[in-house]
Design a binder for these strands. Sequence first.
DNA 1: GTTAGCACTCATCATCTCTGAGTGCTAACT
DNA 2: AGTTAGCACTCAGAGATGATGAGTGCTAAC
Lengths: 350, 350
Amino acid sequence: MDGRKLKILAAVVDEYVRTGEPVGSKAISKLENINVSSATIRNDMAALEQMGYLEQPHTSAGRIPTFAGYRLYIDEIMTPSDLPDEEKSRLDEMLGGKDTPEELLVQNAAAALTEITQCAAVVTNAVPRFSVISKVEVIPTGKRLYVILLITSSGSIKNKACRLEFDLSHEQLEFFTKYVEENLSGVSVDELSDEMFDKMVAAVSAYMVSLSPLVRGICELSEDLRQQELTISGGEKLLSCEDLDKMEVVRFIEHKDELSELLEGTFSGIQVKFGSESDSFAIGNSSLIVSKYRKDGKEAGSLGVIGPMRVDYKKIIPYVDYLTQKISYLMSESEGDIISGTVDDYDSKP
Amino acid sequence: MDGRKLKILAAVVDEYVRTGEPVGSKAISKLENINVSSATIRNDMAALEQMGYLEQPHTSAGRIPTFAGYRLYIDEIMTPSDLPDEEKSRLDEMLGGKDTPEELLVQNAAAALTEITQCAAVVTNAVPRFSVISKVEVIPTGKRLYVILLITSSGSIKNKACRLEFDLSHEQLEFFTKYVEENLSGVSVDELSDEMFDKMVAAVSAYMVSLSPLVRGICELSEDLRQQELTISGGEKLLSCEDLDKMEVVRFIEHKDELSELLEGTFSGIQVKFGSESDSFAIGNSSLIVSKYRKDGKEAGSLGVIGPMRVDYKKIIPYVDYLTQKISYLMSESEGDIISGTVDDYDSKP
DNA sequence: GTTAGCACTCATCATCTCTGAGTGCTAACT
DNA sequence: AGTTAGCACTCAGAGATGATGAGTGCTAAC
């Protein structure tokens, strides 16, 4: 594959991303770093079309990249631009500092991506699977009404109100709290299971049957805790995007679980997926730029941008990359480790 | 104003709502309960146009209702249809029972309205302004990390993690908890003020200066508590609505505060407002059908539907009305009071 | 007061032509 | 052999033209 052909392919992608119109040979010949005539470019473009990297919407129009063309461009040709320092500090500000709760951190990242890219952002929270239950409290707050509070070592706090059939005496409450603390505190979130709670229900029911709703409540909270939640922010941006089918976008926003599944199956490092390449996540002509953030070295959640295929990869990839790294840093225990400024490793094979 | 003219106006609105096309005299003359010829209708329609209730998009087209036409139709002519019992029980199921937390209740109502009307729904939560602080807890959960828990008599639970500069001793924590409980429990949410917290900060700082972030934390939680939150659900439905300008819809979804302001200024009972009538909330050709729900007899929050002006008022109003009444009932302390099935009082003057 | 009849209006749709951007191919040039 | 100029060709898109028909207002008769 000719060096000039790559250059021309890159030029076609860049121009198409910029203008949204099919790109003709003449337009390319006028570009700065292209020094051959339009006829030569025509020949090369015909070759690129033969190879499957370009296509013509109709005979007398310019060329637009095919999937394969985008793929080649992203994987081999393009070099993402560097993020200037002021942008980095702007992002830092939007994210929040080390004290920011994890959940808010990823929400902030999503908001930042939406604003910067004007596309939809998608994030999953960090499932605190390696953290342990550090506290369970049951607090009476009204007639027959109790608030259950569940706190993990990673700082997740879940609560839930629970109505019982009878009021509990002070001793009963103390018994229950003690029992639960003994059985749950120090247990890792990953170890929590329905069977475990079933056993607990049986045990407390032996003491007092009407306590079981409280155990059920704790069980539900623990399910909340274990559940990976996916948030799409700025979904409406996709609706004002001409390249995407509105119906598909609406369907997509309403069925997050599909995307959730897809994200499960991704690797580390920045990846770019095209909607139509995967059958589970299907907005035609859409593109997903995604990366996984880590917590204490382990993959914890995902962070990405969904836009039209015609999106400025050179610009967006550094943002996703920087945010991923920054979040990984902020979530991890070890302090002092300054985030690396360099950006590499775009393993984007599907 | 002629009885027949009213009938014709109603027919025009109904037909226009049904078909979306301008309505001609011939189409109306074919309707069931119209027994005059198209020529007569033409005369009446010309009169209605003169009076400002109808207009023609262009000379050789049928008529469509003007704002005034809709207003007259809604206020004087139309009678909302009755909600069949099976629909009522369907709604009851979607809402949840008496044990459902208030916040979830209004969210469920929004979801139900979105699904049924295929328009956007808008709800505000019930600000628990007449409830009192029933519990404040500070729970140590990690090194220098504390969870503040704030519970009101109405069952709202707010929590927040707070990092201090030093760990607190058992005595210090006990002192603080006691101090806060003494000063806050029983205080109504409405009475909470920044000055109050400023005083508390001063007081605890005298004892131990590093306690003040905890007070600040409580202050923030109380702000959360007092804040009325507005949720728009199903905003995307508006985007697939031809009558509405997409740009305006996006702007609207992103600037909820405008709508929030508008809702503040509404009365009880079902009201219908048109986007272009008000200058603060402006999606052209949109219509807002809104009602306030009550808690223990006092207005607590709003509940409504936003759709194109060309919306089936006869059908939607009963839904909004029923949900409002049902929520009012579910939120109120007094039990047993069966919800009234009748629907009236559509004070919809702007 | 109501209706039939008729001339008139004008958006919409289909058809047609014109234009220009862009192509592929060939022949000349380096 | 690779590059370029030239040229005939294609075809989407923008206007122009004309037919169609739904709908109107007005007048005169019932």
